[in-house]
Design a protein around this nucleic acid. Structure first.
Lengths: 273, 273
DNA sequence: GCCCTATTGTATAAAAATCGCACAATAGTA
DNA sequence: TACTATTGTGCGATTTTTATACAATAGGGC
């Protein structure tokens, strides 16, 4: 026991697994069985001023999913998350924070298994047992500045792009649960940390910052009070005005003061803290 | 691959593993390989008015550890945590919340492996590979009322008891990291949720409630303001006075109003909430 | 019983934070 | 030049927080 051995499996099955998990034949023996990671990457669309999430559309089955991947035997979960996200979407992020490990017995529904099997039948390989293999997955979350990103689909997905969270489609497996839990996680953090720096471009308007908060909180905030509250935190620098071409007063651009921001992050803004 | 089979292993090795993991011979084939759980159980000592943590002392090696255990193939992590805690310490809790999954490559230090091997040598079995097998573990945390508990060691531990957190000894493997992360988790929760109900007896003094908060926050709070803040939350009922025999004014006893407590828990007490 | 001590419950003033609304400033348009 | 939509800011009213004071009181010592 505990010295698990890989059973003799047909070459075709290897290929199938490689297809499914974006791994070369060589890497299969390097993966840690039974555990995967999934990433919930939030981005802010500065033009539309709304919150987005990074999704990919699986070629096999055509459903949308969070970008995720396997963990290698010599890799911690955090590294697996960074690597997988980069490999599968082309996006590198500096911070990925784990928020929950999902261990449902049947994370794949029976309908999804049947769908996969009907597709896989074309490949003429026995994969039912594989689809029924239990995988735990650890969810990671991060927020990034959409502007600097160009999501690229990998060979196992037909699409990879930002989707406004108000338009989020139903996701595969238990990915909707993962997404919702990520929202909760960020919402709670927002109450005691200003985590919005990574979401916005270098310079941004106060309106955009407010939209970020409203996006996660799911409710409108009072404009002038939000502004004064943020300014009073003393983590913003003011720059030139932004001429939009609209017939109204031009807003100032702001940026985060990195040092002050970091020290406030450490301190937190809590009830007793 | 992915159909893992248990290699032929000597009977003695089975026994050893059963010894180590508190499992009957039969259960060995039912466990999910590679993933375990560990529980950080906080209790409040109403007499000494201080925060404690539930620890067990391993017979093998004599070091202290958090109570933990394996996960069965047909079990989610949450159930595994409840079952393991009950089996290994005799303590049943209503809520166990996961807070982090620890995936370090070498969660067991080289010294610990050598120590275990030197002890295991007496059993005349090859176990080095087993001790080097990688296990991820998910940390769970809960708070309970110590008064109603009687920790009982299992056959693999020489002791199981409450330890004041100020006296916490060094723990095995990465259990100190797990403990610290649990403290952080509760401290953050404390900032937006009154989570102290489970820690205290039915009726308690305001002083005890304050000690709970101070225990997690690690800093003193102002007495009268703490009192008025708590009363203003409107979740406490006041009862008869407690005659301690001390030469001073007797404090009232309080209890949580379950309904109001639950609704406040749902609502939270946050910055924008 | 009478003073003393340590602790508890509460009141309150001062300071700070929050909230709602008003209003001036202004980039562009008609 | 008037008008519109939006932004930055001021400010009083209200609420919350903080620090401190003080009365109440259970028991001990005499």
């Amino acid at each position: 026991m505990f010295f698990y051995c890989v059973q003799t499996i047909q070459y075709k099955f290897y290929i199938f697994v490689a297809y499914f998990f974006n791994m070369s034949f060589y890497n299969i023996e390097k993966i840690l069985p039974g555990h995967s990671i999934d990433c919930v990457v939030f981005g802010f669309d500065y033009n539309e001023q709304e919150l987005n999430v990074l999704l990919m559309k699986w070629k096999m089955g055509g459903k949308w999913a969070l970008p995720g991947g396997v963990v290698y035997k010599d890799e911690i979960l955090e590294d697996a998350a960074h690597r997988s996200l980069k490999e599968r979407t082309g996006i590198s992020v500096s911070v990925l924070e784990q928020f929950h490990t999902f261990s449902g017995i049947n994370r794949r529904s029976e309908e999804e298994i049947q769908l996969m099997l009907s597709i896989a039948a074309k490949y003429d390989i026995k994969i039912e047992k594989w689809f029924r293999t239990r995988y735990l997955t650890t969810g990671f979350v991060t927020v990034v500045n959409m502007e600097n990103t160009t999501p690229v689909e990998d060979i196992y997905s037909s699409e990879c792009r930002w989707v406004p969270i108000k338009d989020k489609p139903e996701l595969v497996m238990d990915h909707d649960d993962i997404f919702n839990k990520a929202m909760d996680h960020v919402r709670i953090q927002l109450s005691y940390l200003p985590i919005s720096m990574a979401l916005l471009p270098e310079k941004f308007t106060m309106k955009a910052l407010k939209k970020v908060y409203e996006g996660f909180l799911g409710k409108p905030l009072e404009r002038s009070n939000f502004q004064s509250k943020m300014l009073k935190l003393d983590i913003l620098n003011r720059h030139e005005k932004l001429m939009t071409g609209a017939a109204n007063k031009a807003p100032y651009l702001y940026s985060f003061d990195k040092e002050k921001y970091e020290s406030l992050l450490k301190k937190g803004i809590g009830l007793f803290v």
